[in-house]
């Protein structure tokens, strides 16, 4: 019986990026049954069971509490509607970026804003008695967004396949869909409205409030979060070693503070090591070199762990007391 169940995308670019992310954090995922297996293990985490599922199934499993944690798109999570209350978005992952937008026919030269769409929909209904047809898979977010913009003479045509083709196929007038570059929209003679951005989505590491979280599960996930955060800090920080001499100790400490860094150690009098934001490391190192006699070395760090990680602490607060 696994302590913590993690859902990971089972196919496509989202899977590649998710596996690369965990591998980079030293949490490599290996599939038990070869490439086709749908259960997997996570390196160094014997108590974790990894399940390979579609992003949609991960979203539903989070809602239902069938998995503790999963990687899926924010667009899908928000589409849960009331079920979104059961989700904790623990960490945005920086990949799988896409915008959920309202797109209208490019030929509608008179329509550039939501206010235009509102007027046009009212005119259509007054003239034909029919509502503007909006094709989308994102029923709840579409409804909430259009409602908030005062558009109400519309009707959703639920699309299951290629939403962007619906206007050309004659079954819809406008669409609400995910886009990355807008190329697919243009190819289908559609354009986004200037104020028609509903959501800037990306992949999220999300946890389920509906799952049962015994102390062991919380501890295992906290350890994983600490490692993810340590890796992130490792990438963002350089370790600078500078032999400035004991006489320059105060000047070096002031320099560290000025550079937004933190003192790591003084291994012998006058030999300091400090962490410095990677982008300021050259400037800080040159300044440190100017202070002292000895050479200054700059080192990359794989991980920088803290006593208690901010990420795991925030998750624990969000989930509430045990």
């Amino acid at each position: 019986m696994s302590t913590l169940i993690i859902g990971v995308p089972s196919k496509g670019r989202l899977q590649e990026q998710t596996l690369a992310f965990f591998a980079d954090c030293g949490l490599a995922i290996s599939q038990d049954g070869g490439k086709r297996g749908y259960a997997a293990r996570m390196a160094g985490q014997a108590a974790v069971e990894v399940r390979l599922l579609s992003a949609g199934d991960i979203t539903a499993a989070l809602r239902d509490g069938d998995i503790h944690v999963g990687v899926t798109g924010e667009d899908l999570l928000r589409e849960l509607g009331a079920g979104f209350q059961r989700i904790i978005m623990v960490k945005p992952l920086g990949f799988g970026r896409a915008d959920l937008v309202v797109a209208a026919p490019s030929a509608w030269l008179d329509v550039t804003t939501m206010a235009d769409l509102d007027e046009v929909s009212a005119a259509m209904r007054a003239r034909t008695g029919k509502r503007l047809r909006v094709a989308t898979k994102y029923l709840k977010q579409t409804h909430a967004f259009l409602d908030g913009r005062g558009v109400d003479d519309y009707r959703i045509v639920e699309s299951l396949g290629a939403t962007e083709g619906a206007p050309a196929a004659g079954v819809a007038d406008v669409i609400v869909d995910i886009t990355t570059t807008g190329a697919t929209l243009s190819a289908n003679h559609l354009k986004t409205l200037s104020d028609g951005l509903i959501l800037k989505s990306q992949a999220q590491l999300a946890a389920s409030r509906a799952a049962t979280w015994p102390p062991e599960a919380r501890a295992v996930f906290a350890a994983i979060l600490d490692q993810i955060e340590a890796r992130e800090h490792g990438r963002a920080l350089k370790l600078v070693r500078a032999a400035v001499g004991a006489a320059k100790a105060e000047a070096l400490q002031a320099l560290v503070v000025r550079m937004g860094g933190r003192l790591a150690s003084e291994s012998e009098p006058g030999l300091f090591a400090f962490y410095c934001p990677a982008e300021r490391a050259p400037e800080a190192s040159a300044a440190a070199a100017a202070l002292g006699a000895g050479p200054v070395g700059v080192f990359g760090s794989d991980y920088v762990f803290e006593r208690t990680g901010a990420l795991s602490r925030r998750f624990s607060d969000d989930l509430g007391p045990e």
Binding site: A104, P105, S106, A107, W108, V120, M124, K130, L132, R133, P167, A168, G170, A172, D173, V174, N188, H189, L190
Partner: peptide, 8 residues
């Protein structure tokens, strides 16, 4: 080269 789609 914009094709008219939608119900207007």
């Amino acid at each position: 080269r914009i094709v008219l789609v939608g119900g207007r």
